[in-house]
Nucleic acid binder design. Structure first.
Lengths: 206, 206, 206, 206
DNA sequence: GATGAATGAGCCTTCATTCAT
DNA sequence: GATGAATGAAGGCTCATTCAT
């Protein structure tokens, strides 16, 4: 039944679009009101859809919250990975990667707030993260880890557990980003990035 | 009326004891179930008292949560400050301070969990922080900042904004602590401390 | 979008109906159990709806209580005003008005009970009266006051502050109504009305 | 055992004193905060005694509330009765009685507020009235009723049910008293009394 | 499939009352 | 007898989720 198949395709496409819509709305509302302060009603309203529709798209509040992080995380990582792939050395890959993801966060202020509020890369059990999301997060982390591993191998980085280095780097970078926000983003992004890179080199390069 | 005075003293002492009991119970429950997942009923039960008694001791759920952080934070800071005071150089003060607060957290695993869950030194608006707590946090930060400032002055630290250095240090240390927990505390505390100190020296010493 | 408009109309109509249902249920429960003795749960049950639905309809217990008074008060006043408007003299207007509102109260025994319990025209600070209700009460009083004023002008009533006369009249009439209830409503409404009118004439006519 | 008897007497006397204290405190607090808004704790504090002591003195909140009314009611009636007893005619008795009880209320502003808030002489089921109080209230009413009955007999009053007349009179007088309060007591008590008497004569005298 | 009205479990908090000291 | 700390039942309200239209 090609007709049915086409319908399925259409249906799926529409569903995907609705989901994207919902997730983007959720990002805005969660960023503004926090997880506890956000009602599903608010998200539906922000997304311009009915509550029931929202529930047809996501499994519940927790899943939706996780999906926001997954969605943006995926995008952010993809961009960072693409950029870093063009590097000729692990150190350069790291520099390019940082530049890329800071640019991404600067372009997505709502996600930045969420990221700083709740995204604890060191968290014991990041709240509301499904298995799918967890595995995806691991993949993302793995990219950074790979860069560190290569850098250790070629002697440009200190010998430490790469995943540890990645987590420390992310944690420290959160401080830079918060201070940047507290300062009303007065510092140019390029300067911010340079300081973040400098920190990493000081902490991890030989 | 010395009788009344004595009674007041007794009453106050008892109240203080009850409050400590309640705060300790709250620490355990908040650590295990998180803020949102904790019912006041649970805390009362854990403290072995009736709900009404708990409410005679604290003003509400938020205040109680804040009190847990304040209580332990105060203790931790006092110990770290005392220890660091005996140092003969800024660098040694930092080392002693880190050793002290890690020891404290190792002795108070529930507070450690809370600390890692919610104590985000980089947070934009740390939830539920009363003015008392805020000032207390500032004092704590100030101590660390002072050490960094002295270290910059005597040339042992890089020239950076001291409060920035303090926040980065704390953020990075959280990663060490989480990994330590994830590893079931298999690493001896002394070794953990050494790695944390080594990181700070790498990141901030000339 | 005429569809949406129609839906809005439908929605509004339904909401209005539900609100009326809720208010009528509340009237019964408040009349039977008093304000303090009434739980919102009871009202919801009496109205045959869930608690959440009730809260979708009214803002809370106080607002609901006020709404009952407002609703019935409005109806009662409208009827009394309509009737009195047909009178050819102030005295006749008063007679018709009294006849009308007593008939209304006789038809709405639950509201009568509420009226006797709480509607104290002499109250210093009538509890729970929102601004809307206050203005409505003023309107009601104004109507009666107008009749008295006209009666004073044409010489049929004694010269007194009309609003005082209105309040005294209402207070005295409450006694008639309570006694009627205590007597199990054995006295015909028409006779009751005649006695109430006689009282007013004795007290206020020249 | 005369010793024990004396102790009992002392004990009783002390208890009676405490009870009076408590009732007076309760009067103030109930007048200021209303029945629902008053906590037993508040009354105890106002009376300068411990909560347990208060409960040794009265059976509970409702009983205490009733006791306030009973206490003052008794005093008020006693004075009114004494005064009225010196009258040479029913009409004069009524005049003297009114003068007396208005003076009493003017001297006890807290009781006046309570009286106007809650004392519904026409109420179907006056809240919280114990059997003792009910009988006392009947006695009080009986006095007034007796005056009316005598006045009907000697032809000075209209022929109506005396208890009805008494209740109507009280209800109407509440309006006078509320207006007097609303007017900040600007009107002299003597003038107020004259208007109240005038009303009664207009309504009930032949 | 979309809608949004309806649901009701759940939680924070208060305060009348009791009872060990 | 006086005390007041302790109790815990009770109730207003919210909001995630469902399901009839």
């Amino acid at each position: 039944m090609p007709e049915t198949q086409q319908q399925n395709r259409k249906t799926k496409a529409r569903k995907a679009m609705y989901r994207r819509l919902a997730i983007e709305a959720a990002e805005r509302v969660f960023a503004a009101q926090g997880y506890a302060g956000t009602r599903m009603q608010d998200v539906a309203a922000e997304a311009g859809m009915a509550l029931g529709t929202l529930y047809g798209i996501c499994a519940g509040k927790e899943e939706l919250y996780g999906a926001v992080h997954q969605q943006r995380g995926e995008q952010m990582l993809a961009r960072a990975a693409d950029t870093a792939a063009q590097a000729s050395s692990p150190l350069e890959a790291l520099r390019l990667g940082i530049r890329s993801y800071v640019a991404f966060l600067a372009e997505h202020p709502d996600y930045l707030r969420l990221h700083l509020q709740e995204d604890q890369p060191w968290a014991l059990s990041p709240r509301f993260i499904s298995e799918t999301q967890r595995s995806q997060w691991r993949q993302g982390l793995a990219l950074t880890v790979e860069v560190f591993r290569a850098g250790i191998a070629d002697g440009s980085f200190v010998e430490e557990e790469p995943s540890h280095m990645a987590r420390v780097m992310i944690a420290a970078h959160q401080v830079f980003l918060v201070e940047w926000l507290e300062d009303q983003k007065r510092q140019p992004v390029a300067a911010l990035v340079e300081r973040m890179i400098a920190f990493v080199e000081r902490s991890f390069c030989r």
